[in-house]
Amino acid sequence: MIMSNDKSKKLVQLHVNGKTHDATIRSADTLLHTLREQLGLTAAKPACENGDCGACTVIIDGQPMHSCLSLTIETVHQSITTNEGLLDSPLQQAFVDNWAIQCGYCTSGFITNCHALVEQHPDADAALIDEWLASNLCRCTGYQEIKDAVKSVLRMKKDQTSPL
Results as ranks from 00 to 15, higher is better:
Thr34His: 10
Asn5Asp: 15
Ile25Thr: 01
Leu41Trp: 00
Lys7Tyr: 09
Asn5Ala: 13
Cys48Asp: 05
Asn5His: 13
Pro46Phe: 05
Asp6Val: 04
Leu31Val: 00
Val12Met: 07
Gln13Asp: 13
Leu31Tyr: 05
Thr34Val: 15
Asp29Gln: 07
Ala47Gly: 10
Gly18Met: 06
Leu14Gly: 02
Thr42Val: 14
Thr42Ile: 14
Asp52Leu: 10
Cys56Gln: 10
Asp6Tyr: 07
Lys45Asn: 08
Leu11Val: 11
Asp29Cys: 09
Arg26Gly: 03
Asn50Asp: 10
Asn17Ile: 01
Lys9Cys: 05
Thr24Tyr: 07
Lys10Gln: 14
Ser8Trp: 00
Asp52Ala: 12
Val12Ser: 06
Glu37Thr: 11
Gly54Pro: 02
Leu32Gly: 00
Val16Gly: 12
Glu49Gln: 13
Asp52Ser: 11
Leu35Arg: 03
Leu35Trp: 02
Asp22Trp: 08
Val12Arg: 04
Ala43Phe: 01
Thr30Phe: 11
Pro46Tyr: 07
Gln38Phe: 08
Gln13Ala: 12
Asn50Phe: 12
Lys10Glu: 13
Asn17Pro: 03
Thr42Leu: 06
Leu41Asp: 02
Leu14Val: 05
Lys10Asn: 12
Ser8Arg: 11
Asp29Pro: 13
Cys53Asp: 03
Ile25Ala: 00
Ala44Ile: 06
His21Met: 08
Thr30Ile: 05
Lys10Arg: 15
His33Asp: 15
Asp6Asn: 15
Ala44Glu: 00
Ile25Leu: 02
Ser4Gln: 14
Asn5Gly: 14
Glu37Val: 07
Asn50Met: 11
Gln13Asn: 15
Val12Ala: 05
Asn17Val: 00
His15Ser: 11
Gln13Leu: 11
Arg36Tyr: 06
Ala44Asp: 00
Val16Asp: 03
Ala44Gly: 05
Lys19Glu: 14
Leu14Phe: 02
Thr20Val: 15
Thr20Phe: 12
His15Glu: 04
Lys7Ala: 10
Leu32Pro: 00
Lys7His: 09
Gly18Leu: 08
Asp22His: 13
Glu37Tyr: 09
Thr42Met: 08
Gly54Ser: 04
Lys45Met: 05
Glu37Gly: 12
Leu14Tyr: 02
Leu35Ser: 05
Ala23Val: 00
Asp22Cys: 07
Thr42His: 08
Asp6Thr: 04
Cys53Pro: 00
Leu39Gln: 09
Ile25Cys: 02
Asp22Tyr: 10
Leu11His: 11
Cys48Ser: 05
Cys53Tyr: 02
Thr34Pro: 10
Pro46Val: 09
Leu14Arg: 03
Gln38Arg: 08
Gly40Arg: 09
Gly40Phe: 10
Thr24Leu: 12
Ala55Glu: 12
Cys48Ile: 08
Thr24His: 10
His21Arg: 08
Ser4Arg: 13
Glu37Trp: 09
Lys45Ile: 04
Gly51Met: 01
Leu11Pro: 01
Asp52Gln: 12
Thr30Trp: 06
Pro46Thr: 10
Thr57Met: 14
Gly54Met: 02
Asp6Arg: 10
Cys53Thr: 04
Gln13Thr: 15
His33Leu: 13
Leu35Phe: 04
Glu49Tyr: 10
Lys19Ile: 03
Ser27Gly: 09
Lys7Asp: 12
Lys19Val: 08
Ile25Lys: 01
Ala55Val: 04
Gln38Ala: 09
Asn17Arg: 06
Asp29Met: 08
Ala44Arg: 06
Ser27Phe: 10
Leu35Met: 07
Ser8Phe: 01
Gly54His: 05
Gly51Thr: 04
Ala55His: 07
Thr24Ser: 14
Leu32Arg: 01
